[in-house]
Structure formats: structure tokens, C-alpha cells
């Protein structure tokens, strides 16, 4: 087990050994929070962030284990090392929270986000949009004579890059799911 795995009631706070605890530098962390799938859990998690003034950059949630009534909440948050540790400890003591994983420090992980982008255009712009979509491996999931809806999956930075390119070509609407993330390698 990674030394940074925060277990409920564990005294292992070894994250401090690796990073400057007093650093004022903001860090971006991706947290995976495994919760009991019961009413109000998401509100409790979000309420913790708003009530204590923490940031949420992205949040996704869905049931991942129907039989075991478990949902997985993936949160991307930004804060100083001390704030990140507080967030993990505060999440860990919410009664219906089963596990808290900090994917950013627990070893390598993969992060993916899905986005749908609507691009309107005619003539060259439309052809260019389609050509760029191929380069970015985006799929066309809807088309009219004057528009496309592209579907693409990737790291958030890839989606940002694609959206930037599409903007002058007629990007008019974008929907993003937020980050889903898993640790690399075999079972934790």
C-alpha cells in the first residue's frame, strides 16, 4: 500500500515527509472518493467544500458497484499541501465515505474526460474542423449540412487544446463530463 493511502482512523500522514508542509504553492490533486450510494452523500461532500472554502475544479459521480451500493466521486481540487491534507481528512470522516484516494500522490494514474463540441460552419472552415477532428481522434456523433457535434475523450488538456482550435472554426457549444481517473497497474 502506498504510504499516502489515507485510511479512516489511520495515523499515517506521511504525505508531509515528501512535500514542504508550509508551502504556499497551490497544487492540483485528483481525489477518488468511494462512498455509500445513499441519498445526501453528494450534498455532504459538496457541502464540505463550500462550507470550508475549498475549491472544486471538476467533479464527477456515478454508481460503480450496484450490488455493494458504492459510488465513486472523482474530485479535482486545488490548494496548498496543508489544505489538500485537510480536505482528505475531512472527507475521510464523513460517515458514508468508505475510502479516500489521492491519485496525484499515490503513484501513476490515468485521467480521462469526455467532451461534446458543437461546431457550426460552411466551406473551408467546415472541412478544416473535420480534418482537425481526425488528428485529435474525435468522432462525429451528429451532423447537419452546417454543423457537427464532435465527441472526444482524453486528458483535460487535450480537450482544452481541441476546443481552442475549434473556436475560430465556429465552436458554439461545449459539454464536458469532468475528470474520471484510475490508478495505473493492478488492483490496489
Amino acid at each position: 500500500m502506498s504510504p499516502l493511502h489515507i485510511q479512516q482512523g489511520s495515523s499515517k500522514h506521511s504525505a508531509y515527509d515528501l512535500r514542504d508542509p508550509n508551502s504556499e504553492v497551490l497544487e492540483r490533486h485528483t481525489l477518488a472518493v468511494i462512498v455509500a450510494n445513499e441519498p445526501g452523500v453528494l450534498a455532504r461532500v459538496i457541502g464540505l467544500f463550500s462550507g470550508r472554502g475549498y475549491n472544486i475544479e471538476s467533479l464527477t459521480v456515478a454508481e460503480t458497484d450496484h450490488k455493494g451500493h458504492r459510488s465513486r466521486i472523482t474530485i479535482v481540487t486545488v490548494g496548498t499541501p496543508q489544505v489538500i491534507e485537510q480536505i482528505k481528512a475531512q472527507l475521510g470522516r464523513i460517515v458514508p465515505v468508505h475510502e479516500v484516494h489521492d491519485l496525484t500522490v499515490e503513484g501513476a494514474s490515468v485521467e480521462r474526460e469526455l467532451a461534446l463540441l458543437k461546431v457550426e460552419g460552411k466551406g473551408d472552415a467546415r472541412i478544416e474542423a473535420l480534418r482537425l477532428a481526425e488528428i485529435f481522434r474525435a468522432n462525429v456523433v451528429d451532423s447537419t449540412l452546417e454543423s457537427f457535434v464532435f465527441e472526444m475523450t482524453g486528458a483535460p488538456s487535450k480537450i482544452d487544446a481541441f476546443a481552442d482550435l475549434m473556436r475560430p472554426l465556429g465552436l458554439c457549444e461545449i459539454a464536458r463530463t469532468g475528470v474520471a481517473a484510475l490508478a495505473r497497474g493492478g488492483a490496489a
Partner: peptide
């Protein structure tokens, strides 16, 4: 302290004991 969120919340401590 029995509550891990009480540790290092306000004052950084050298030796936390959760229990």
C-alpha cells in the same frame, strides 16, 4: 486525537497519534 482532521488543521504538529 481520535479525529484525523483535527491534526495539522491549525497548528502543525511533529508527532500525531490518531486514536
Amino acid at each position: 486525537d481520535i479525529d484525523p482532521s483535527s491534526v495539522n488543521k491549525v497548528i502543525r504538529v511533529d508527532l500525531p497519534i490518531i486514536g
